[in-house]
Amino acid sequence: MATPTDILTSHGTRLQDRIAFSEIVFPAVEHIPDALIFSQSKPVTMEIKSEAGSVSVPFVPELPASQIIEEGQEIPESAAQINSLNIFTFKITSLVTATNESVEYDNNASKIQTLLTWQMDKSVTNKADAVFLQNAPNEDANGIPDGPIGLFNLKGITQGGEIANGEGITNALQNGLSVLVDALAKVSAKGAKPTSLIMNFGTWAQLLNLQYADYRPMISPDVANAPIPMLYGLPVVINNAAPDNKILINDANVVYSAITDMRVSSSAHSKFSRDATQFRVTFRFGFGCTNPERLAVVSVYNPVPPKAKTTKA
């Protein structure tokens, strides 16, 4: 029988055919690459350990003016100011317990641990997306929130109107996707450069059901069937964490995030009496928006058609 090879980790060693009692540190993007925080914001990876600590991210509210000058002429100083955005970070974690027999079955410990880690990564991704889009934190006596404010709930976000759906649609210019076009125009007038439209699949389905008066779909089937649907040149990001009947016009250029490395740990200490091992995944992240008015929320109204009146015989 071959002797197992020791594999170095950040905290000791583990054996290829045994449970890893260790902790390994990875860049979070390697473990949860599908989390919206990476594609829908400007992430900054930092070493953050303090529970109450915050990260200060510098930004320029308005771009400095550029100009043409003659050769040798002194360059005039811009009046643009530099502000900072304080981002509080919060820990997200997943913890599971498995019997030692199950994770050591047929010398497949490494494969089983990989499967468990993948499942925990998915759980962390789902939670991070829910926080990123919908979180509504409470504040303590000192005004410190217990979590970041989700993008859909940002104070000062532009209200983009309401798209009507159902029997009420008779004129696309009045009740259809023109509401979305108007919302894009609103945020663009405030300096936004929209990067995506975020919604859940139920809301996307409502948009796909929009029809002109002659029952033609407002959204082309080619768009609906594309691997990455696009509306008005913007990718449609479908995510279950988005609230029902809401569309977020996002500008990732004004959404900043602070993200730590991800720690994947395992230990049998607390479950020694049960002959079991616990596996844990943790990372910290936070985010904020420098210009909430450059984001917009558009509602989708889906009225229930009135029931037909019946008469008694």
Rank of each mutant, 00 (worst) to 15 (best):
S50M: 11
F201C: 03
A79W: 01
D275R: 14
M120G: 01
I228M: 15
V237L: 08
A185D: 02
A65N: 07
I87E: 01
I75N: 11
I24R: 11
K307W: 00
S10E: 12
N200R: 13
P217H: 02
V304G: 02
I144P: 00
D251W: 05
Q73G: 07
I37E: 03
L116T: 03
N250T: 12
M120C: 10
T260A: 09
P306K: 13
A241E: 03
Q40N: 07
I259T: 14
A141W: 05
G53D: 09
T311Y: 14
G143K: 09
G168W: 11
A252T: 07
N250I: 01
Q67W: 05
S299W: 06
A79N: 11
V29N: 13
L197T: 01
L95W: 08
I92F: 06
I19S: 08
L151Y: 03
E62P: 04
F283M: 10
A205S: 09
M218Y: 06
T310M: 02
F59K: 05
V223R: 05
G288H: 10
I238D: 05
D214Q: 11
A241L: 04
T158K: 10
G202V: 04
S267H: 03
N225G: 06
P4I: 02
A189V: 02
P229C: 02
N108D: 07
T290A: 15
R280M: 12
P76S: 10
T13K: 08
Y232P: 04
A20I: 05
P58D: 07
V60A: 12
V236L: 09
S188K: 14
V187R: 06
K122E: 08
I112T: 05
T282L: 13
A28G: 03
E77A: 15
A192C: 11
E162N: 10
N302Q: 13
S54Q: 08
V55K: 12
T311I: 12
A226F: 06
C289I: 07
A224K: 06
T93I: 01
P235M: 02
S266A: 13
Y301K: 14
Q278C: 02
D182L: 01
S84E: 12
D17N: 14
E51Y: 14
E70T: 12
G286I: 06
G156N: 12
T45N: 12
S123H: 11
N142A: 15
G160S: 11
V297K: 01
I82T: 15
D17W: 13
S220G: 02
G12F: 08
I48Y: 01
I157H: 04
A268H: 03
V255A: 04
A205K: 08
A136L: 09
F26I: 08
K186E: 12
D140C: 09
E47G: 09
T195F: 08
G150W: 03
E101A: 13
G161M: 05
A35K: 09
N175S: 14
